[in-house]
Computed example of a mutant assay.
Amino acid sequence: MAQSSGGIGIRSPASIADAADRRPAQLTGFSSDHAAHRIEMNTRTRAMKLPTSRQRKILMLRKLLPALFVATTALPAAAVLTAPAMAQSQPADQVRVRGSVISLGDKALKVKTREGNTVDVTLADGWVVSGVAKAAITDIKPGDYVGIASLPKVNGGDGALEVLIFPPALKGAGEGSHGWDLKPNSSMTNATVADAVKGVDGQTVTVSYQGKEKKISIPNGTPVVTLAPATKDDLIPGAIVFIPAAKDASGALATHQIVVGTHGVVPPM
């Protein structure tokens, strides 16, 4: 310790800093290296921010979208099941279950399909549920990203069976036109609206995707929806559901995603 001319002990800045470095170890009983590590970890923890409710919704929708609206024979990587029996077989087929809830269990959802059959759909770890909210034809504007199920018209072009207006955060997801099973010969087109022309009976939209264009008429009365939040509490008996599922060689079904109708609005896809 440095001494002043008056004999009073005065601590140098260096000695103060050295004592401060030793203090965590003296107080906690840990080494100075351990204390420094704890301080660093606490600093990192404080720097981390929990996602906002909007960010959580976007993350949920991004998980939900690929298996809902991309018509492929193989499931997305996130939906691949890892049961030993399935690992030894060919990749599971992708199917879509449409119907109403009979009951919800801890591990499975029992559904009465639109064909009249009763099926059990296993709920994979981390499964999510979404709802739909009603929209209008007039809500469809140039620049919107939409998913339109349609049928070819006799006089050319397609006629819409239903329209999903995607949230802006999902623009570009699953882009393209694929076969769909809402009705025989139907297709699902995920594309950006280039223009929308209002007519006497609804409107006609020109959509663009992957360098191509397609004209689709949307008659008045066509169901138009957008995605909305929902929880497993909405899976009550009688609720209408749309479920993209994996079907293995034995016919067993499993899913990571469910779309459920709420507040009188049913999933039209």
Rank of each mutant, 00 (worst) to 15 (best):
A67R: 13
T113D: 03
L81S: 07
P13N: 06
G105N: 01
A85H: 12
D201A: 11
R22T: 04
A124G: 06
L65F: 15
K134F: 06
S53L: 09
G157C: 07
L65P: 00
T28H: 08
T226F: 01
A2G: 03
A149T: 15
F30Q: 11
H34S: 05
R62T: 10
V111Q: 04
G174W: 10
Q257L: 05
A135E: 12
A246I: 04
S15K: 03
I39G: 02
D234I: 02
I216K: 01
A17Y: 02
D139C: 04
G211P: 02
L50M: 13
D144M: 12
I140Y: 10
V259A: 15
Q210R: 12
M48L: 14
P237N: 13
A133I: 09
V128P: 00
A79E: 10
P142V: 05
A20N: 05
M188D: 02
R44C: 01
A149I: 14
H256A: 12
K198N: 11
K141A: 15
A254V: 03
A136Y: 15
G9I: 11
K112V: 06
A2V: 13
P142S: 08
P223M: 07
P76F: 03
K134T: 11
K57M: 15
L182W: 09
P167R: 07
V224K: 03
D158I: 00
P167W: 02
G147E: 10
I58Q: 13
V260K: 07
T118V: 15
T138V: 11
S53K: 11
L170H: 08
K49G: 03
S130L: 07
E175S: 13
G116Y: 08
I102Y: 01
R22S: 12
T138M: 13
G116D: 03
A87E: 12
A230Y: 08
T113K: 05
D106I: 01
L170R: 08
L64Y: 14
G211S: 02
G116K: 04
G221L: 07
A194R: 12
R11E: 10
L50E: 14
W127I: 01
G174F: 09
G221A: 08
T204V: 11
S217P: 00
L161G: 06
K247F: 00
K63H: 14
T73Y: 09
Y145A: 03
H256G: 13
T28W: 10
G9T: 15
H34L: 04
A14G: 04
T206M: 09
V95P: 02
D21C: 00
P237T: 09
L123W: 08
I240T: 15
D139N: 14
P244V: 08
A25K: 02
H256N: 13
R56D: 06
F30L: 15
A67G: 12
G159Y: 00
P237L: 13
L65R: 12
K212E: 09
D234M: 06
G143R: 07
V163H: 04
D248H: 05
K134M: 13
Y209I: 03
G157S: 08
A74G: 00
V200R: 14
V205P: 04
I258S: 08
T113A: 05
T122L: 11
L75C: 01
V101S: 12
Q90N: 07
S5K: 14
A252W: 01
D106Q: 12
A230W: 10
V95T: 14
L75I: 01
